[in-house]
Computed example of a mutant assay.
Amino acid sequence: MTMMHTNEESASQSIEQHLYQRLSKVIDPELGRSITDMGMIVSIEAVPRVPSVENGIAAYDVVVQVELTVKGCPLSETITNQIKGAISSYPSADLTPHIEVSSMSKEKLSHLVEGLKEARRSNPFTKKDVKTRIFAIASGKGGVGKSSITANLAATFASLGYDTAAIDADIYGFSLPSIFGVHTQPTNLNGMLMPVTAWGVKLMSIGMFTGADRAILWRGPRLQRSLEQFLSDVWWGEPDVLLLDLAPGTGDMAISVAQTLPNAELVIVTTPQPSASEVAVRSGLVALQVPMKVRGVVENMSWFDHQGEHLHIFGEGGGERVSERLTHALQYPVPLLSQLPLETDMRTTAESGRPAVLNKDGALDNSALAQSFKKLALSLMS
């Protein structure tokens, strides 16, 4: 009897050890770290079921005590489902998972956050070995679709499998939350913010804190500080791509980006008409004064398809003009990366809280517009 009891204990301990190893591969979606490394798994107990053998396979109830970072964590269900999946896939026994969820104590959470901050140490995107490609989407004037392009480009990157983040750096005219259908605030972990994830993109915007109906009356130093906080006080992990939706023109925020993210690349958005392309050139010429490279030009609203005909409502050639003038002024190639049509879907789908390049299931659509953004995304990463 004692020998049988000892064998059962040994078998349970072996299962518990193997399950812990499996759970070490479960990654917290917000922090990008293993749930075991972060101390979220408090205990694992494999209890023989009665009868202990079913269909010739040893049967156990597995009780896992999980401590999430905050009470009411929005990704609680996602994490518990991943834990259940890891347990259920164990091949050597019939395991039934039972997940008991609670939240970390203030002391434990504080220790975790301090460790994360120590590992990151301020702005994570200025390290020499950073892998993140940073694209600042700029325009000379408003109304050219810069934010729509930023949102759809971010959604495209995410759908292609890139770990993607986006910052709404247009403090006065923030619009990314509405395009992505975000109505929640970032989770606050003892002073460290978790970006809100929507349609596969990690997002941060001042609009998540103020509400879309409130005016922002900030000037230079405070604007720069807001960007620094978005970079250093938010846990981004190590995204493959970071997009910044800049305010129109060549003001304080563009200079702040250059100072805080010297490895960022500018993407200039224009429309075909001369009035837009002229000011778009000026936004690109910022690169003569700050250490930023202009990656290329995107011409938006290039034509409108009507009964099989391309109607050039806003004229032609704006993107080419900006490309040629910046190439001449900066003395390196500034290509015209893409010409995008004027499509009502860019507006109507965004108003529903979904980037137009995605279908309702969140996958990249098969439309010509989505394929144009796919081509643009791949060209930027080349």
Rank of each mutant, 00 (worst) to 15 (best):
L288V: 06
S302D: 09
L243R: 04
S232K: 06
S338N: 07
P355L: 10
L364K: 08
L242Y: 05
E278M: 08
V286Q: 06
M253D: 05
P262A: 01
A287R: 00
L311R: 15
S232L: 01
G308Q: 09
V298A: 00
S226R: 02
L223H: 10
L364Y: 07
G315V: 04
L243N: 05
P335K: 02
Q307Y: 14
L285D: 04
H328T: 15
V257W: 01
S232V: 02
P248G: 05
E324T: 05
P341T: 03
G319D: 03
V294Q: 00
G317D: 10
A247I: 08
A356C: 09
R282N: 09
G353Y: 04
E324D: 15
L326W: 01
A276I: 00
E265M: 09
S323T: 03
N366G: 11
S283D: 02
Q259T: 10
A350T: 06
M253K: 09
V267L: 11
S232I: 06
V322N: 03
W235K: 07
N300F: 08
P335I: 07
G308D: 06
P274G: 07
L364M: 13
S256A: 05
E278T: 11
V267F: 02
S275W: 02
A258N: 03
G251T: 06
M346S: 14
G362L: 07
E324Q: 12
V279G: 02
D345T: 14
A363F: 15
L364C: 10
Y332H: 11
R347Y: 09
L246P: 00
A356K: 08
